[in-house]
């Protein structure tokens, strides 16, 4: 297996798709990322991430309706699979584990630079 490892960007994409529920297609995913994560991404990068996720079996896709705004082309809607959700949970657990180990009051005095 090429790896079920979930990259950071891929994790975000998964979360975005989940949050968009059944309105997750190319344009909305990109907009959501740009707005909520405040990160400029190219369509190509997004597409690559989506292909990878689909290869890994974390998401599935299906063709949706076409629209005159899109020059009559169909949308492709993405949904997160159970496996994708499990992977997200896995990633979260790992992080939570580490967060749990950090002493709560260990704050570093100093200045934010």
């Amino acid at each position: 297996m090429k790896g079920t490892h979930l990259g950071e960007f891929q994790e975000i994409v998964l979360l975005v798709i989940l949050s968009l529920d059944d309105n997750a297609y190319g344009v909305t995913i990109k907009q959501e990322i740009m707005e909520k994560v405040n990160r400029g991404i190219s369509r190509g990068a997004l597409h690559t991430a989506l292909t990878r996720l689909e290869e890994k079996g974390f998401i599935t896709s299906e063709q949706g309706e076409s629209h005159p705004d899109r020059g009559g082309r169909k949308k492709r809607y993405y949904t997160v699979t159970n496996r994708g959700i499990a992977a997200l949970h896995g990633a979260k657990e790992i992080r939570d584990q580490f967060w749990g180990k950090i002493p709560r009051l260990k704050l570093h005095p100093g200045y934010d630079s």
């Binding site: 190319g26 369509r43 629209h67 020059g71 082309r73």
Partner: peptide, 15 residues
Amino acid sequence: YPELQGDLLEEFLLN
């Protein structure tokens, strides 16, 4: 891919 083209166009109109 028609979806990609569609996405591009839709976004273009928004832009």
